[in-house]
């Protein structure tokens, strides 16, 4: 599930939650406009400090990925994915650089890397279109 926590990971728990929700939205596990469990509910469910969960929700809200409607709860934002596009592009670029470094150490050539990336991108969008 998107709220699974890997205790062995060195990633802080709140970051894992943020990543988990982002991925779940991107994969369509969480739909736009869908209601998320409240901080209290989630804290009790996964036995995590409620402030940690609140922190994750706050970060997601700041990024416009989820939104809290007073008295009604927390929802996946409707244009969540579009929000903050400039920032997002920059972040993706940074991640891409990491992949490049990794590829360099693995001794991949430019063509090989492009092939792998192309395959991954194609597969991703194919899955997404089937899902819809």
């Amino acid at each position: 599930m998107w709220f699974d926590i890997n205790q062995r990971s060195s990633t802080p728990i709140y970051r894992q939650l943020v990543e988990g929700i982002k991925q779940a939205i991107a994969r369509g596990i969480l739909m736009q406009g869908e209601k998320l469990p409240s901080v209290r509910e989630l804290a009790a469910r996964i036995a995590i400090n409620p402030n940690t969960i609140a922190k994750a929700y706050q970060e997601l809200e700041r990024d416009g990925i989820i939104e809290t409607l007073r008295g009604r709860g927390t929802f996946v934002a409707v244009q969540g994915i579009k929000a903050g596009k400039g920032e997002r592009k920059k972040a993706v670029r940074e991640m891409a650089e990491k992949i490049l470094v990794e590829a360099y150490y693995l001794g991949l050539t430019q063509e090989e890397l492009m092939e792998i990336l192309g395959e991954a991108v194609e597969e991703w969008y194919r899955e997404r279109s089937v899902g819809k």
Binding site: V39, R40, A43, A44, R45, A47, I48, N49, P50
Partner: peptide, 14 residues
């Protein structure tokens, strides 16, 4: 152990 921690987290959250 998990139930135990759940209860405690529930208590502090609620």
């Amino acid at each position: 152990r998990h139930h135990f921690m759940q209860l405690i987290m529930q208590e502090t959250a609620r």
